[in-house]
Amino acid sequence: MTQARLTVTLPEHIWIGDVSRKHPEAVFKIMTAVPDSGAAFALLKLQTSEPDALIESIDSHEEITELSIIQQTAQEVTIQVETVSPPLLHLSAQASGMPIEFPVEIADGQATVDVTGSHERLSELASQLRNFDLDFNIEYIQERLHTTQLLSETQQELVLKAVELGYYDTPRDCSLTDVAEAAGIAKSTCSETLHRAEETMIKHFIDDIPTPIESERRISAPE
């Protein structure tokens, strides 16, 4: 399973791109969105020090046909909007079969998009973004393995037992001897089994931390 994060530059004349560039300090979080034929509906949380000005800018944009304020505080507003055109990000996701994870965060015309799926779907998403003339950068790509693929059954059971007893709490609620007794094994066996499991998980975590250069090398998408 491939996980990726992309930064997508929203084009001009798209309402959320225009408004977020006009208010670069504001953070837009798309909680959910439903494309429709010739329209779209979205629920957003807006984080800003000037909520009234931001709402006015959104409501006055030509693409917005309806705006409702769901909840408002001094620095956060939840709104529902209807627009005249479906969001290009979601059209790209639909066309590629790669669902976008919510919330999608947008600031100053840049959308941070997280996706999870096969490498082939990710490549297709990249192609669809290009088809819709959406510029993007790949922040990272990483392959995720399920824990059952990392640890043996014995290691999994012992790690779960140790967590349950509070061995990994700070401060610890039990000792290594307590874990060994609860598992019905010798303390030395318990220590070695936990150490090997910890080594596997830590090394996998370190190897799983991508760099932008590695990410660019690991994706191949047709132009």
Rank of each mutant, 00 (worst) to 15 (best):
A93Y: 00
E101D: 08
S152Q: 06
H23R: 03
L145V: 07
M201V: 03
R144K: 14
Q142A: 07
I55G: 05
E139L: 12
L67R: 09
M201P: 04
S175P: 04
I69P: 07
E101G: 07
V77D: 14
A183E: 10
T116E: 14
T65A: 12
R144C: 12
A111Q: 13
R196V: 02
A53S: 14
E153K: 11
L134Q: 05
N131S: 02
V81Q: 01
Q72V: 08
T73F: 00
W15H: 01
L125G: 08
E153T: 13
Q71M: 05
P103R: 11
D114A: 10
L6Y: 02
T83C: 03
V115H: 06
K45A: 15
V34A: 09
T9Y: 10
L150N: 10
D36Q: 15
L145A: 09
P86R: 04
E56I: 11
I55N: 08
T147V: 14
K161F: 07
K187G: 12
R172L: 10
S188M: 10
T170L: 10
Q80S: 12
R5I: 00
E120V: 11
F102Q: 04
E56R: 13
L160F: 13
E66R: 14
T83I: 00
N137M: 10
P210S: 15
Q72P: 09
E164S: 04
S49E: 15
L129E: 08
I100E: 06
L165V: 00
K203T: 14
P222E: 15
L125K: 09
M31V: 05
H13P: 08
P99R: 06
S127I: 05
A107K: 14
Q71G: 07
S60M: 15
V104C: 08
I100L: 09
S60R: 15
S92D: 10
A53K: 12
A42Y: 03
S57A: 04
H90T: 09
S215Q: 05
A74K: 04
V34Y: 07
Q142R: 11
Q94F: 05
H61T: 01
A26D: 14
I16L: 13
L67D: 09
I100G: 02
T9W: 09
F41K: 10
L88W: 02
A107M: 13
L176N: 12
F205P: 01
I138D: 11
I70N: 08
L46E: 12
T148G: 06
D169R: 00
P87T: 01
M31T: 00
T32C: 08
Q149P: 03
V81C: 05
